[in-house]
Design a protein around this nucleic acid. Structure first.
Length: 196
DNA sequence: TTCTCGATTACCT
DNA sequence: GGTAATCGAGAAT
């Protein structure tokens, strides 16, 4: 078992979602003995038509309006859970979607839950990573700590690409998808046109 | 109450 | 490349 990095503090999440999404790349993510390094994340804000918080607080989006560091988990297409972490001050409806991690520990449990041997596809996508980690809507609305979700500080600074988000039909021009350059564990490759 | 569609994935041709 | 699976939230009626 590798030594666990010290957890990020609440101040880490109390910033604009695009800043949190960029800085969370390279951080560790663990839940019940399984986890890895975050290699892909997307930012969502309240002034953002693609965000669930865009139309204000509703029964589903309530967790997005909680304090920074709150977990927002929702079901997409009736079958996949997506994990978000609330950012930027209580009530702003800002959050970061965790889209992919590079699996580093608890691999056997994750392979079992995914019914898959290919480590590259174990956590490469928001629905895949929640299935691999065993994360469900039961965690929705909980603070990270009480949910048992651990986000550890970065050990090294990764190269990050800022590119447009995936799977949305609105505000597709915002470069709010953050991807670790060179990682083979992302859900989709970095678009060729990206330079920075 | 009914209808539409989704921050996805896996499997098909 | 295309699409079925599967169901709840939110909008429309």
């Amino acid at each position: 078992m590798t030594p666990r990095a010290r957890a990020v503090g609440r101040a880490f999440f109390d910033r604009p979602p695009e800043a949190v999404a960029a800085d969370i790349i390279g951080c560790g993510l663990s839940f019940q003995g399984s986890g890895g390094i975050i290699v892909e994340a997307e930012a969502y804000g309240q002034q953002d038509p693609a965000s669930h918080s865009f139309r204000g607080e509703t029964p589903r989006s309530r967790a997005m309006f909680g304090p920074p560091g709150t977990i927002y988990v929702y079901l997409i297409h009736g079958l996949h859970w997506c994990l978000n972490l609330v950012a930027e001050g209580r009530g702003t409806g800002a959050a970061v979607l965790i889209r992919a991690i590079e699996p580093t520990h608890g691999l056997d449990a994750m392979r079992r839950r995914r019914g898959l041997e290919d480590d590259r596809l174990l956590c490469a996508g928001p629905g895949r990573l929640t299935q691999a980690l065993g994360i469900t809507g039961a965690l929705n609305g909980l603070p990270l700590r009480s949910a048992g979700v651990h986000v550890g500080r970065r050990r090294e600074q990764p190269q990050i690409a800022r590119v447009p988000r995936i799977g949305i039909s609105q505000a597709t021009d915002l470069p709010w998808r953050m991807v670790a350059r060179g990682s083979r564990f992302v859900s989709r490759p970095i678009p060729r046109s990206t330079s920075a």
